[in-house]
Nucleic acid binder design. Structure first.
Length: 874
RNA sequence: GCGGACGUGGUGGAACCGGUAGACACACAGGACUUAAAAUCCUGAGACGGUAACGUCGUGAGGGUUCGAGUCCCUCCGUCCGCACCA
């Protein structure tokens, strides 16, 4: 018996070169064939690929190769999300140009991806930092501007007063700048926005059409858009204390039904009323400053302790002239949502409750929960936010929550304050317009020229692309484009007078909002080639991390609609959705290790002693004990990283891919373990041994199919065809771990059959071997090619069709069904698949275990579920 | 704070539409082969009791619906993710 081990390192390179020479993954439009566009989220070129990429791209490649085998014309491209802050940080820290750094990273990572053996069409490679890409993005921006989809307005940013720079939320740590440590301030800047809110309704309602998206992502997006039906209510302000020119305060509420439970009004620190009041009250001004220092992150604001400041201003209740309520400035009211002002009903909202308890404001219950008694009902510190019956609410008493909403809304609409209705129904969205301005160098320049006379003027299209200057400096913080000596100085396209370029660049989410469109015709002279887009779009299967569930996916959904509305894109089918099916894969995690001194250690800096509960880690360099920490997402900061290059060099790409697909369900996190990889490596050798044995025992062609098969041969054939069926269905459902288990199970059967002899077995084993190779093809493509060649074929598995299983091999004549007595399993029964219910019942009642369990009693009832179960109720 | 998810043996997980819980794999134990080791092959195993046949318990906790619940409903506990300038 030949017993040479499969040499992955050598053979993988060989097969990659065969695929590359044959250009077999190169895609082109072919209207005569059904298409399948398979896409994984393109990577940020951070330096090296990580295990998360390996997992993501292994999954996408299985789908792409499987679809090819099922006869689809597959588009499977790859590119680089190449603009972003890390390049600029690298420039500052290491004095490398962001472009040089990025392109070097791309070269490294392209090489790493190629070593994975992915079935990619590399001829379509895109880098978003290339002028040939962002030129078209600038054109799209100009057309959005013409259409009113892009506009300018003032908005707040995190400002580091020491570094004189704008900070991202992630650069603000506990309210301080990450480099300078200075307290962060908020500044108003005029910035560019995309009018995503115009599409809010469509983006929300079309979620229903995305049936092949995870339910949770659709839910998250729906909540993010946050449509609510409420009212704008205008409250008169008591003239005595109100600042000049402020006679009323408009609030947005979704709960006009709880108006009689109101005990205060609150405005955001940036609300005009707050600013006006702060001018005459230094303490209030200080409080507002403090609120602003919390940063721009909603999470920070809402997690902070509820605090407020009584402005002394009093508002008059819309339903009772004699009822005055205090107006606070509060740190939990967001200027960006609604009108930046609320009325607080402590009994009906937990935040309001917390606030009321802190400042000793009245808490009046206005909604009686079902089943409670109005006399005895009491609230402690927990608000009741659900529906019920109105109490303590005068003319609303006794109404349901929804009827009270209607009644209060109708009255407010009829009532006047000044000469206008006091209330107006209003649909409000949590979704805000998308601010795309970034005060950074390494992004797509916004093609605008600011003229003293003509304001912001679009760059003429003939002047596109506006390219980034190469000779920018990165030795100090701030925007390198802004301080560049010459770049921004140009003449106004209208009047020819000296003017300045926009020095802000676009949010990198813009780059990734249409790259999948560009992939359909990466060389087109216009942003999109409509014919190519019609053929390939939408993406049939999109795969990426759950962390993109909201922003990237929502922005992309918006962006393609905006492209459609500016004539840049249209779909062949009746949809405006870019991604027909979405799959979000889990993260790759690993144990963490720390030295005695509390420093993080890389996995290869520790070795292990003992097993199970006695397993201990030892620091290799010093021999001192190390601490085994929790299992966490692989990250540089915790050093729990495994380098894909090391794994591929040691075990091969197929092994890394196989392990990534095994065990853990793809949507869940996977724990990377040495033992797991080693197990995958063993399976590869096992497949190779099986194939070697088959090739030696049954060389040459399979020959004609025997007229009949003995029981042993039949068993092999059944196992093979069932696996084929099950693996196909598992891959279709992206349940790769189940597909792997099915292949394991089948290979166990095949391996035991190798020791048996006979012409029918020979044929069945040859057939089973062929099928095994086809089945592992999408997951371990190199091994599959090697085995295919070993079995004597001179074709490529990559070009082989996925065979159809023989239906008669998928069903058994006999079925095993469980027999329960009173719901407890007592026995099982092997019976003909076609047995009638009465026969099954009779057979079950004769079983000794059933008779014993019934203890002589006659059965009260027998439930027979054909081919499944019998339950005897006694 | 708001929103979303997840929880099954020593471990990762499987279980179709409510129908035999623990497939498959890892780790482990015993055996075969070997001078030996590695590799490979065979066998075993949820927990508890029992020589065994078998019995009882068992899917984070508690309750409910049902002939039957890992699966459906309610309450609770724990873990994780997102929150708009990270990508």
């Amino acid at each position: 018996m030949a017993n040479e081990r499969y040499n992955a390192a050598e053979r993988e390179k060989y097969w990659q070169s065969v695929w590359e020479k044959g250009e077999i993954f190169r895609a082109s439009e072919d209207p005569s064939r059904p298409k399948s566009y398979v896409l994984e989220m393109f990577p940020y070129p951070s330096g090296r690929i990580h295990m998360g990429h390996v997992r993501n791209y292994a999954m996408g490649d299985v789908v792409a190769r499987y679809k090819r085998a099922r006869g689809f014309n597959v588009l499977h491209p790859m590119g680089w999300d190449a603009f972003g802050m890390p390049a600029e940080n690298a420039a500052m820290e290491r004095k490398v140009h962001p472009g040089a750094w990025t392109y070097a990273n791309i070269d490294t990572m392209r090489g790493q991806l190629k070593s994975m053996g992915l079935s990619l069409d590399w001829s379509r490679e895109i880098a978003t930092c290339s002028p040939s890409y962002y030129k078209h993005q600038q054109k799209l921006f100009l057309d959005f501007l013409k259409k009113g989809i892009a506009y300018r307005k003032s908005s707040k940013v995190n400002w580091d007063p020491v570094d004189q720079t704008v900070l991202a939320n992630e650069q603000v740590i506990d309210g301080r700048g990450w480099r300078s440590g200075a307290l962060v301030e908020q500044r108003e800047l005029t910035q560019w926005f995309f009018k995503i809110t115009d599409y809010a309704d469509e983006l929300l309602s079309d979620l229903d059409t995305l049936v092949n998206w995870p339910e949770k992502v659709r839910l998250m997006q729906a909540n993010w858009i946050g449509r609510s039906e409420g009212m704008l209510v205008r409250w008169a302000l008591d003239k005595k204390a109100a600042p000049k020119d402020f006679s009323e305060l408009e609030v947005y509420t979704t709960r006009p039904d709880t108006l009689f439970g109101a005990s205060f009004l609150a405005v955001a620190a940036d609300h005009p009323l707050a600013k006006a009041a702060a001018e005459r009250d230094p303490k209030l001004a200080a409080f507002c400053d403090e609120c602003r220092r919390m940063g721009t992150s909603v999470a920070d604001i809402e997690a902070a302790e509820k605090r407020g400041y009584d402005t002394g201003i009093r508002a008059i209740h819309p339903f009772d002239d004699s009822w005055e309520l205090p107006v606070y400035v509060a740190n939990f009211v967001l200027m960006d949502y609604g009108t930046g002002a609320i009325f607080g009903c402590p009994s009906g909202d937990q935040r309001d409750m917390d606030f009321a308890r802190r400042y000793n404001l009245p808490v009046v219950p206005v909604i009686l929960p079902p089943g409670e008694n109005a006399e005895t009902f009491q609230l402690t510190d927990k608000a009741y936010v659900d529906d019920g019956t109105m109490i303590n609410s005068r003319f609303l008493d006794g109404l349901s929550t929804s009827a009270a909403f209607e009644e209060a809304a109708n009255r407010l609409e009829k009532q006047s304050l000044g000469s206008r209705p006091q209330g107006a129904r209003k649909v409000n969205y949590r979704l805000r317009d998308w601010g795309i301005s970034r005060q950074r160098y390494w992004g797509c320049p916004i093609p605008i020229i600011h003229c003293k006379t003509h304001g912001p003027v679009p760059v003429p299209e003939k002047d596109l692309p506006i390219e980034l200057p190469e000779d920018a400096t990165f030795d100090k913080p701030g925007n390198p484009l802004d301080r560049h000596p010459t770049w921004k100085h140009v003449n106004c396209p209208i009047c020819g007078e000296p003017a300045v370029r926009e020095t802000d660049t676009m949010d990198t989410f813009v780059d990734s909002s249409w790259y999948f469109v560009r992939f359909t015709a990466p060389e087109a002279q216009t942003p999109v080639d409509l014919n190519a887009a019609h053929y390939w779009l939408p993406v049939d299967q999109y795969i990426g991390g759950i962390e993109h569930a909201i922003l990237h996916l929502l922005y992309s959904r918006f962006f393609v609609r905006a492209m459609c509305d500016t004539g840049h894109l249209s779909f062949a089918t009746n949809t405006r959705e870019p991604f027909a099916a979405l799959f979000t894969q889990g993260m790759v995690t690993h144990e963490t290790y720390k030295s005695e001194d509390g420093l993080w250690l890389l996995p290869n800096e520790v070795r292990f002693e003992g097993e199970g509960a006695n397993r201990k880690a030892v620091e290799v360099s010093s021999g001192r004990p190390a601490v085994i920490g929790s299992i966490e997402k692989m990250s540089k900061s915790k050093k729990n990283l495994v380098d894909p290059d090391d794994i591929i060099a040691h075990y091969g790409a197929d092994c890394a891919r196989w392990f990534m697909l095994s065990d853990s369900p793809p949507e869940r996190d996977v724990i990377w373990t040495e033992a797991g990889v080693a197990g995958a490596g063993r399976f590869i050798q096992r497949v190779w041994r099986i194939v070697e044995e088959i090739a030696e025992a049954y060389p040459g062609e399979k020959g004609p199919k025997p007229g009949s098969f003995g029981p042993e041969a039949l068993e092999v054939r059944k196992a093979a065809h069932r696996a084929l069926d099950a693996v196909g269905r598992a891959i279709e459902a992206l349940r790769f771990n189940v597909a792997v288990a099915n292949i394991h199970e089948f290979s166990n059967v095949l391996q035991s059959a190798l020791s048996k002899r006979g012409p029918d077995i020979a044929w069945a084993v040859r057939e089973a071997g062929d099928l095994l190779i086809v089945m592992i093809g999408p997951m371990m493509p190199h091994l599959a090619e090697e085995c295919w060649a070993r079995l004597g074929y001179n074709t490529l598995v990559a070009n082989e069709p996925w065979p159809a299983p023989e239906p008669e091999l998928l069903v058994d004549d006999q079925v095993t069904i469980a027999v329960q007595v009173n719901g407890k399993r007592r026995d099982e029964l092997v019976i003909s698949r076609s047995a009638k219910s009465e026969e099954v019942e009779a057979a079950a009642l004769q079983l000794g275990s059933v008779v014993r369990a019934l203890d002589g009693r006659p059965p009260k009832k027998v439930i027979v579920v054909p081919q499944r179960i019998v339950n005897v109720v006694g």
